[in-house]
Amino acid sequence: MSVIEHNFIYLFFVVLLMIGLYGAIAKVNLVKKLFGLTIFQTAIILFYVSIGQKKGAAIPILEVGHGHQALPDVVAAHYINPLPHVLMLTAIVVGVATVGVALAVIQRLYAEYGTVEEDEILEKIVRS
């Protein structure tokens, strides 16, 4: 299949995504759910970054000194696509922010119920 031949990198991203999604849905421990969510987001970041790859190209930083001289012609095929990297900087920051807020909520949950297992918390809620 063409996917396995040329685009096997996308299979890695799909497997990682599946692991993260399974963790986020199936795990009962809230911290493990959060880990699953983080793996899920990381898989998407890897997907985007792999879009920008070009065979034999260099990183998107032009080699020029500090003299602000005009560059000779820049050939686009010699540098990888910088746009997915820019987008993923944003996505990484958003991911970190979400993890921070989720950890704060988990801390409050632990202070309130004494456990971070979802089934025990639900039991305590039903009992009270």
Partner: peptide, 11 residues
Amino acid sequence: GATDFPQWGDP
């Protein structure tokens, strides 16, 4: 959905 992606690394 990924079966009709362009080849990876194609400039």
